[in-house]
Design a protein around this nucleic acid. Structure first.
Lengths: 245, 245
DNA sequence: TTCAAAAAATAACAATTATTGAAGTAATGC
DNA sequence: GCATTACTTCAATAATTGTTATTTTTTGAA
């Protein structure tokens, strides 16, 4: 037995079967959440920790002028706010992009998980560090790359992360996955206008790099797309390739 | 007795005098490091944890094309890489901006600090979360604000962080601090060209918002500068205002 | 299946930002 | 003091990105 969380944490290495069973137990009763629902709002005191088991969610912040910046995308296996219990108030919001299955973990449960299981604690620590590394990679992406390469880089990252939990396919050089991001989401994530996102997507299509249709992204030649945007998966720290079960 | 680290962690709250003494002891023998030196290089396995006691440092990543993105600025009291011991390789580099005094802490020391002193552990945890929040704020800044407001926002953040460790002045509405960032650094931090940074600084000067001369920044009216860029210090989580000692 | 709403695609034009080069000034380190 | 580095200013051009508006397609609900 396995689930997205365990598949992900296996990349951190060091988990025993007993640890996996403990994690499975903690994920026992996920709740369904509809698309477009806030899991946490800015200003709230943090309560539960949210774990996405199925579906997609995202972290965002609304500026006074109404602009929205997306600062994280959560895929199955991701904690949305593992860390945040120490802070007094949330400084951002979290919402679902698609219908999700979400595990609500009380702080007490998280403390139990980590205090009683050092290898799990280490794996969760690893996940937190990877989240931070992703944030840095996004900063580099937005700051330094041109628009079409930003989009390409995001797609490469999403593919790698979804592949790590078994939600992407790879076939002779190509790859594919379902993406929840609309063009307006991409725009708010990369700091562009939706129109420009659309233009850049056209470019990627015309360059023969991607096919994007009905929220399904096909990467025609993964190596070529990665070269195009200078994607280096090192920051995802997936070096411990687990056996596929 | 106090130092920048203690002044900073006092904002997390909860430290006892004994904790402060323990922290002071850990900072006992800082090493001087010249300006422009790498403390850690991308690709290295992480070794020591670095704590800046005096001076400024920054985290950066160089892209294949040679572009540099600065992903963090460290001021006195900041850990550069508290967290990173778990990962196999550094995915970025860290270097000094000015001559610094740096405490090199072995992983063992960090483990001792946290394992034996729960309130210190909590404070370090808090510092890690704030670092992440700053990263998100930078993403929002670069993604959503126009160039001059990005610079203003960065200045507001630096002022707040330096004020938290007693390195900024505030006088009847205004404020001032020494900044280590050259215009090329600002450019690599915000994803602009140096020429454009220069232009935007002129705008801020002409708007009567700042005076920047010889690496000293004077904010003429802090409230006005904050309003100009929509700065809200909440993400720095400095709510526990300690007594100044 | 049909309809209404949302999202995506497209186009023309405007605004912002980057690039390059050059020249001069100021600050800094040795 | 001298050499070096950083900053300032100007200009002309190019590239990128934003704005607005319209059409088409997709999506989701009735």
């Amino acid at each position: 037995m396995s689930n997205a969380l365990i598949r992900k944490l296996d990349h951190a290495g060091g988990l025993t079967d007993a640890d996996r069973a403990t994690l499975l137990g903690a994920c026992a009763s996920p709740r369904p959440v509809a698309a477009g629902q806030d899991l946490t709002c800015e200003g709230d005191p943090p309560e539960n920790v949210h774990l996405i088991l199925r579906g997609f969610a995202y972290r965002y912040k609304i500026l006074p002028g109404g602009k929205r910046q997306i600062t994280a995308v959560f895929v199955p296996g991701d904690f949305c706010d593992l860390h945040v219990a120490i802070l007094q108030r949330m400084d951002h919001s979290i919402a679902t992009l698609l219908p999700c299955e979400v595990v609500y973990l009380s702080r007490a449960t998280v403390v139990d998980l980590t205090a009683g299981h050092p290898r799990i604690a280490r794996a969760l620590w690893w996940a937190t560090l990877v989240d931070e590394a992703i944030l840095r990679a996004w900063l580099v992406n937005i700051g330094q790359r041109e628009a079409s390469r930003q989009i390409a880089h995001l797609f490469c990252e999403l593919h790698a992360r979804l592949d790590a939990v078994g939600l992407a396919t790879r076939d002779n050089g190509g790859a594919a996955f379902d993406t929840p991001l609309r063009q307006t989401d991409l725009a708010d994530l990369l700091g562009m206008t939706p129109v420009h996102v659309n233009r850049m997507l056209q470019e990627l299509r015309e360059a023969g790099l991607i096919v994007l249709k009905r929220r399904r992204l096909q990467i025609l030649d993964l190596a070529r797309l990665r070269a195009f945007c200078g994607f280096d998966a090192a920051y995802l720290h997936l070096e411990n390739r687990p056996d596929r079960r």
